[in-house]
């Protein structure tokens, strides 16, 4: 883990390496794949000591060995050379444990430059594609940006939906209505 401001500086540095929107998206894809690889967990290792991110951040492994592992992973995911150099730098600087924050900041920066925004919609039951399309269109109308929508099912909502767009939360769920009613009744 590293501080948010430090992760943001690394994310800005990487985005400056990408000259075109295509390159930015490619870097984002590479960074996302590497982040996903770091999150993988071996069930045979309950302590998590052999997780990729733990190995890369471990000081008791030589830097050469860790660099070799990093190159192997990046080669397997077909990472761009700039991304390889960037992650090698992050590794050498001892910031590889903050790759998750760097990825999230970089994704936000890329989305912002591309005029995109990510939204998550939770519903009590799975929604059909037409409803998803209506929700996405409504969010795009409200934000004026392309919306990358993810849907989740949360039965605790009982009914309705909750959307998270950036730092905004648009809540019209039965659960929230019941909670408000409970709070009002308690005074």
């Amino acid at each position: 883990m590293i501080s948010g401001s430090l992760a943001k500086r690394y994310a800005r540095a990487l985005i400056q390496l990408a000259a075109t929107p295509t390159a930015r998206d490619k870097y984002l894809q590479n960074l996302g794949d590497f982040h996903a690889a770091c999150k993988t967990h071996d069930p045979r290792d309950p302590s998590g000591e052999r997780d990729l991110i733990k190995v890369l951040a471990a000081g008791h492994h030589t830097l050469a060995n860790r660099r070799a592992i990093l190159h192997a992973i990046l080669g397997r995911i077909g990472a761009d050379p700039n991304v390889k150099k960037f992650l090698e730098l992050v590794l050498e600087r001892g910031r590889i444990s903050g790759i998750a924050q760097i990825y999230l900041h970089y994704r936000d920066l890329v989305d912002e430059l591309a005029g995109r925004i990510r939204a998550t919609v939770k519903t009590a039951t799975a929604v059909d594609p037409s409803t998803t399309g209506r929700i996405k269109k409504a969010l795009e109308t409200a934000t004026g940006k392309q919306v990358l929508l993810e849907t989740e099912v949360d039965t605790e909502l009982i009914g309705g939906l909750v959307a998270h767009v950036g730092s905004y939360t648009l809540d019209r769920s039965v659960r929230t209505s019941l909670d408000k009613l409970r709070s009002n009744l308690r005074g």
Binding site: I135, A142, K145, G160, A163, R172
Partner: peptide, 26 residues
């Protein structure tokens, strides 16, 4: 609670969000 109720809530939500502005959008 049934599908009709869910659709009604989604319709109300869509109508409300469509008429709103989020994040300084024009």
């Amino acid at each position: 609670f049934g599908g009709t109720d869910q659709r009604r809530l989604v319709d109300a939500w869509v109508e409300e969000v469509s008429s709103a502005t989020i994040g300084g959008a024009n």
